[in-house]
Structure formats: C-alpha cells, structure tokens
C-alpha cells in the first residue's frame, strides 16, 4: 500500500491471509477430543502393576478411536513394535520378529515353565513388553539381558505371565517393546 497506490506486495496479502485464518481459528468452537493426549501418555509410561485410571482403560478398550490414539503414542515411544506376526501362520506362533528384536517362546516341560526369549544383541534392550490382542492388554517388566538375551519365565502360576505367553502365540497379537 505504497503512497503511489501501487499494488501491495504479495507479502502483505500473505500476512493478512495468515492473520485472517488465525482470527478464524480463535472463533471456531471445536470440542477437544477426550481423553487428552497427556492422560494417554501417562498411561503409556505406567509401570507394570502400578495403579491405572480405570476410566481411561475402559475408554481404550471400548472406543476404537481412543485405542488408536493410545497405540499411536505407544508406538511412538516403543523401541520396536509389530501390529501382527509377519508370517501370518495358522496355529500358534513360537517365534516372531519385532523390529530388530527376535522373540521366541520355548514350550514348557514337566519341570520347567515356558520361556520367553528376546534376543537383543548389540541393541538397547527393552524394559517392558506390552501385548494387545483385541480388547485385552498385558504389560510385563522384562529383566535385564544376560549376554544379550532376555529370559522371562511364563510361569503358569502367574496368570499375567502365562496369559502373555498365550497372547504372543496368536498371530493377531500386537507387540510393543518399550
């Protein structure tokens, strides 16, 4: 808008467009999605067995949109994750890859419970494992690796652990290593 009445620069038009949009955004009444990202994030960071917000857990289980948002946060913070077993085999899966990690389940014997083995050679080892199958979620702490291998006994006497073992063998089970 120069005194000579020359057309104003494109820059002025651009700035007005940006101001106009910002003013419009302030006027728009838009409902924020619930639960908030902050609440979901707190849940993502929970330690196994720690108290949880039950309403939040219910929302994740029953509302597909909330479940999707929760998984997006979980995946963003996981060392590795896999939505499905890559070899979508029929019947139980005894080994699968989660990103750079190899997971294996050794069947139990008469004297020993089944074993979950996570190979972590040369990579930062995960601390937690979370399995999601349908609306069921299990999260367990993983022990530190010994010589690059994490071993977790899926003791039938510990329902959480034994159920995790069952879920991991289902090809449809999503796995997050945190």
């Amino acid at each position: 808008m120069s005194p000579e009445g020359e057309p104003v620069s494109d820059e002025a038009a651009r700035l007005l467009a940006e101001i106009h949009a910002a003013r419009g955004l302030l006027r728009t009444a838009s409902d924020a999605v619930r639960p908030s990202a902050a609440a979901l994030w707190t849940h993502v960071l929970r330690e196994p067995g720690a108290p949880v917000d039950l309403a939040l857990v219910r929302a994740i289980r029953t509302d597909p949109e909330t479940a999707r948002r929760y998984r997006a946060l979980l995946a963003g913070q996981a060392l590795a994750h896999a939505p499905l077993a890559i070899a979508a085999a029929h019947g139980p899966v005894s080994s699968r890859r989660i990103g750079p990690f190899a997971l294996q389940i050794l069947a139990g014997t008469e004297d020993a419970p089944p074993l979950l083995i996570v190979q972590t050679v040369g990579i930062r080892p995960p601390r937690l494992i979370e399995a999601i199958l349908g609306d069921e979620t299990r999260r367990l702490a993983l022990p530190p690796p010994v010589n690059g291998v994490i071993l977790l006994a899926l003791d039938p006497a510990v329902p959480e652990a034994s159920r995790l073992g069952d879920m991991l063998q289902d090809p449809a089970c999503a796995v997050f290593l945190l």
């Binding site: 467009a17 106009h20 949009a21 003013r23 419009g24 955004l25 006027r27 728009t28 838009s30 409902d31 924020a32 999605v33």
Partner: peptide, 14 residues
C-alpha cells in the same frame, strides 16, 4: 470468520 483452515486443524488446536 470462515476459511483458511480445516476441521482437523481446528480440532488439533482446540
């Protein structure tokens, strides 16, 4: 005031 943004942006900001 309309235009210049979509619903996604309004919801993200809200």
């Amino acid at each position: 005031m309309t235009g210049g943004y979509d619903e996604r942006c309004a919801a993200d900001l809200a």
